[in-house]
């Protein structure tokens, strides 16, 4: 909630997510990124089994809507007439009430899913016929602001 809790280095206004370690960060950073070799060459890709990693990010779903409706209701904006609280109290209350956990939301859900897949391992890949490709692509939700120049 406050700037102070995010002080981790630098000037203190930006949280630094230093080295690797968080699954959420890793999934976001590397999945679907980087050079795809089989696009350029017919490389003898070895028949290595790959776990299906489905890190689909759902941008707007009913769950998302309900989550934000709930977060809004927790604000208790209209408590005034009913013996409500001051703003600072509200902010505190909401924070204690777990706003943080709630707001992390969508990506967490995706990560849970990844963890499910990773932990359920062998059972999870039986659904694939071809078995040994890269993790399933996420739906293309990101638009590259600038495509690289080498569109060959």
């Amino acid at each position: 909630m406050t700037v102070a809790t995010q002080r981790q280095g630098g000037g203190g206004y930006v949280e630094r997510g230093g080295g690797s370690g968080s699954l959420a960060d890793v999934v976001e950073l590397i999945l679907d990124k980087g050079l795809v070799i089989d696009v350029f060459v017919r490389v003898s890709l070895v028949g290595i089994e790959i776990l299906t990693i489905d890190a689909r990010i759902v941008v707007a779903s009913v769950d998302t809507f309900l989550r934000f409706a709930e977060a809004t209701n927790r604000l208790d904006l209209y408590g005034k007439g009913k013996g409500g609280k001051d703003l600072p109290e509200l902010v505190e209350g909401v924070t204690e009430g777990g706003a943080k956990g709630k707001s992390a939301g969508v990506l967490d859900a995706a990560v849970d899913k990844v963890e499910d897949v990773l932990t359920s391992r062998r059972s999870s890949r039986s659904s694939r016929d071809d078995g040994e490709e890269a993790p399933r692509r996420r739906p293309r939700q990101r638009a590259r602001a600038e495509r690289s120049e080498s569109d060959e």
Binding site: I30, L31, D32, K33, G34, L35, V36, I37, F40, V41, R42, V43, S44, L45, V46, I48, I50, A134, P135, S150, E152
Partner: peptide, 25 residues
């Protein structure tokens, strides 16, 4: 230049098929 996870290539193919034909690129 990062490869997309996961890239697994037959050892012989690293030079013959990956680096060789694409060295310039």
């Amino acid at each position: 230049l990062p490869m997309r996870f996961p890239a697994v290539v037959e050892e012989q193919g690293v030079v013959d098929e990956l680096l060789g034909p694409n060295e310039e690129f």
